[in-house]
């Protein structure tokens, strides 16, 4: 065990955490603002990655990467807005079981739809040339693209913080969470606000999918694989808390990396162990106090 291998392992843990954060942040945001547990969030992630692959297939990868990285999530955000208007809007006040059934059914339909449109073949997106290099740390190499994913997630975290704390949009979301009726009486268009929040959640899921596209096989099954991890992260951090999602992602990334280094055989169990420990000590998640308050109010 030398410095280089520890440094590489820390960077690897951060990559895993970065990707999980982008996705879990969307899940948590939607739950925090709309109190919807969206089991179709993983499908949005998969569709984001598939859209990325389709946009890439249009032409030259070195030119297409950046526009595709923005366009794929935007398309998904538009689709998310439509789903909110048609489906989710109707169940904001329904019990959680109804929300689970609706979003689970939706995830099955989206999985079938994706299978119909994109087929069962797994696809692969090339790494853009500018990010294809490696960073050499004490003789060991680390992919530049992973550093990009870490940077992107820091930008997303910062962007969400500014958006929620320092803009009118964020102020309105927080107001709507406290008292949607009051906000509506003040002349604000609350339904449109909720549509925007849901679309933002879908955008983040798809951004996560598009960003990891060069690192992974893209195809059926991505949806359910990520959903479990994203939920673990969101639950550890406290559903509804963006900062909690960041903390949860860091914890999961750290546990996975440490587990892999010292007890490889048991590595996959470590993240569940982390979740159980957190839930025993703080059932509402590390930063989930706000959620508890809502639950009592309900």
């Amino acid at each position: 065990m030398n410095f280089a291998s520890v440094a590489i392992e820390v960077l690897s843990a951060l990559t895993a955490a970065a990707n999980l954060f982008i996705i879990a942040a969307g899940l948590s945001l939607v739950f925090g603002a709309l109190r919807i547990i969206n089991l179709a969030h993983g499908s949005f992630y998969m569709i984001g990655a598939l859209l990325m692959a389709s946009l890439f297939a249009l032409g030259r990868p070195e030119i297409l990467f950046w526009p595709a990285l923005v366009l794929a999530p935007l398309l998904m955000a538009g689709f998310g807005a439509i789903l909110e208007r048609l489906l989710f809007r109707r169940i904001y006040h329904a019990e959680h079981l109804v929300q689970l059934l609706l979003s689970y059914a939706l995830s099955l339909m989206l999985a079938d739809l994706a299978l119909r449109i994109w087929g069962a073949d797994t696809r692969s997106v090339p790494t853009p040339a500018a990010l294809a290099g490696v960073l050499v740390v004490g003789g060991a190499s680390f992919p530049l693209y992973n550093l990009f994913v870490i940077t992107l997630s820091l930008a997303v975290g910062l962007g969400l913080w500014v958006l929620l704390r320092h803009t009118r949009f964020g102020w309105e979301i927080r107001a709507a969470v406290e008292d949607a009726e009051g906000l509506s009486l003040c002349g604000r268009n609350v339904p449109a606000l909720f549509t925007a929040v849901f679309a933002l959640g879908a955008f983040l899921a798809a951004l996560g999918g598009a960003a990891v596209a060069p690192l992974q096989a893209i195809g059926p099954g991505m949806d359910s694989a990520i959903l479990v991890s994203a939920f673990i992260v969101a639950v550890i951090g406290g559903l509804g808390s963006i900062a909690g999602a960041a903390l949860g992602a860091a914890i999961i990334g750290f546990f996975q990396a440490v587990g892999t280094l010292w007890l490889p055989t048991w590595a996959p169990a470590f993240i569940f162990l982390a979740m159980i420990m957190v839930l025993v000590i703080r059932p509402s998640g590390l930063l989930g106090a706000a959620q508890r308050a809502w639950a009592e109010e309900d």
């Binding site: 590489i8 060991a140 892999t260 996959p268």
Partner: peptide, 22 residues
């Protein structure tokens, strides 16, 4: 020299690869 056992369907192998390289 070393054995790694990620779960079936793992999407992120980054924690598992550096020990293999090392």
């Amino acid at each position: 020299l070393t054995q790694q056992f990620p779960k079936l369907g793992e999407t992120d192998y980054t924690p598992y690869i550096p020990p293999l390289v090392a």
